[in-house]
Design a protein around this nucleic acid. Structure first.
Length: 196
DNA sequence: CGAATGATATACT
DNA sequence: GTATATCATTCGA
């Protein structure tokens, strides 16, 4: 059920980004349990990827978790407002990560509505990386946390989108990355009611 | 379309 | 140590 270390240690970050579609991202924070089905991801291929914070081997206090072992969380503040959640992959020393961009409510929908201060669950509840972390209660103080622990983890509920329901395209908001801005590293799944 | 909003990286003194 | 530009976005006009 819960994804194991081996899932995250694999060396093809693009493949892991695709495999994360349909998996269930869970948090238990402030004694409140929330789960969402992942529907959109992006791969960031570390040192060779101009869109990645670790391009060229840049290593700072912020990016330190990306250099850790696969299976850690990398959370950072973007535009001074939004906390963005990433899954660190590959072995220690290879700073790859997958950004979780969107999802569908699974457990704790009411808690998520409260955190987002919204009346009803629509596509905007979890419709972007910043909205998603707010709904799940994720903040930068979770950066470096293990995804095999008690606060945040990922489960397999047996949802496997087939090839035809996955759209692949260039990543969002990475215009600064020159030629790497066009890499087909973004995955979107359309799961028509196939989640529990 | 444009403001909000603050940590972070980088380039200076 | 201090200054400044930049940003893997969101929301509301």
């Amino acid at each position: 059920m819960k994804l194991t270390q081996e899932f995250y240690l694999r060396d093809n970050v693009v493949e892991i980004a695709r495999d994360l579609l349909g998996k269930v991202l869970c948090t238990r924070l402030d004694a409140r349990l929330t789960k969402i089905v992942i529907t959109e991801t992006e791969a960031y291929a570390g040192e060779t990827d101009k869109a990645s914070h670790t391009y060229g081997g840049r290593r700072t206090k912020r990016t330190e978790p990306m250099y850790g072992r696969g299976g850690l969380a990398y959370v950072y503040l973007c535009y001074g407002i939004h906390h963005l959640f990433n899954v660190v992959t590959n072995v220690s020393g290879t700073p790859h990560a997958v950004l979780i961009r969107a999802g569908h409510p699974c457990v704790g929908e009411k808690i998520m509505l409260t955190r987002r201060n919204r009346p009803v669950a629509d596509v905007r509840l979890l419709g972007g990386p910043g909205s998603l972390t707010k709904a799940l209660g994720i903040t930068t103080n979770l950066t470096g946390t293990s995804l095999l622990g008690r606060q945040v983890w990922i489960e397999d509920h047996g949802i496997t989108p087939d090839e035809s329901s996955i759209a692949i395209g260039p990543r969002i908001g990475v215009d600064y990355a020159e030629e790497d801005a066009d890499c087909p590293y973004r995955f979107v799944a359309t799961l028509d009611g196939r989640f529990s």
